[in-house]
Amino acid sequence: MKSFDELILVNYCYPDCIPLKNIMRLPQKEAFALASAFAGSHPETTAFYRFADFENYYALRKNQDEYLYSRFLELGGTPEEKHPLSFVIEGSDYLHDWFGKGIESRLRLRDIRPCHISFTIGDSRADYKKYGRIELLTMEDIKEQLLKYGNDFDAFMKAIGRHYIEAQLWTDKYIAEEYLIK
């Protein structure tokens, strides 16, 4: 049984990529060139199939990030970046496989200030693509949800029946060495 104070955030990265980066933070021309290179050199991987049609992916992701950013501001967040770094709470075997069992970067959720992080139940991009909106949650919302399940994260995950809870980290200050779990 994991309580809120014990929860870990995990970011996945394909084995030959640089961890804790977001392609959307690059200038558009560089982002397109990098996506093309990844899609071409990794045609067999699920992590890069979305880059094969980067024109559509880029437009969708740009709109999604703008939506998340504005919703996070409305909820009282203070994002320092326009495009967040994506993590999941407690990791996901599904995503670990999806990213070729590559590099994992870990942070303690308790080390993150609530004004720097938001959450979605499941994949924010899939929900945005399907519904045109995303239910964004704050750290307080996640705590309240966990309390309904006796502060037991595993019970909560079983009840919601999703692969993971995505976390959007809106600053890079926590990816410094002193925060990363080794």
Rank of each mutant, 00 (worst) to 15 (best):
L85D: 08
M24K: 07
L68V: 03
K29S: 10
E81L: 15
T78I: 15
A47H: 04
M24H: 07
I18C: 03
L75K: 15
K62E: 11
P19W: 05
P43N: 07
D53S: 15
A39H: 04
F72G: 00
A31V: 00
L85C: 05
E66W: 06
L26C: 12
K62S: 13
E74Q: 13
Q28I: 14
Y69W: 14
L75I: 04
E81R: 13
R61W: 06
P79Q: 05
E30N: 10
N63H: 09
K21Q: 15
S41H: 09
E30I: 06
P84Q: 08
Y58N: 08
Y58H: 13
H83D: 08
P79V: 03
F72T: 03
F48V: 01
E80Y: 02
H42I: 08
P43I: 02
K82E: 05
Y69T: 02
F32G: 05
T78P: 04
A39F: 03
E66H: 13
K62R: 13
F54C: 01
F48W: 11
K82Q: 10
T78M: 15
D16N: 13
D65W: 00
Q28H: 11
L75T: 05
L75C: 14
Y49Q: 12
S41G: 09
F38A: 10
S70I: 08
Y69G: 01
P43F: 00
P27L: 02
L60M: 14
M24R: 05
Q64S: 12
E66C: 13
L26R: 13
D16V: 09
S36D: 14
N63A: 06
R61M: 11
R61T: 12
Q28N: 12
S41K: 12
E55L: 07
E66P: 03
A31S: 14
P27W: 01
G76M: 01
F51V: 02
Y69P: 01
P43W: 01
R25C: 07
Y49K: 13
T46I: 06
A33Q: 14
N56K: 09
F48H: 08
E81P: 04
P84M: 02
Y57G: 00
K29T: 14
L68G: 01
E55M: 05
F32C: 10
A47D: 09
Y67P: 09
A31M: 00
F48L: 04
Q64D: 06
A37N: 09
F54S: 03
A35M: 06
L60I: 12
C17I: 03
R61V: 00
E81Y: 11
D53G: 10
D16A: 08
D65P: 07
A47L: 02
F72P: 09
K21E: 14
R71D: 04
A59K: 12
F72N: 00
T46Q: 15
P84Y: 05
T45C: 10
L34F: 12
K29I: 15
I18R: 09
L60P: 01
A31E: 02
K21A: 07
F38Y: 15
L68N: 00
G77N: 11
A31G: 06
K29D: 15
L85S: 08
S41D: 08
I23T: 15
R50D: 07
L73R: 10
L85H: 10
F38R: 15
D53L: 07
D65N: 15
P79R: 04
M24V: 01
P19L: 07
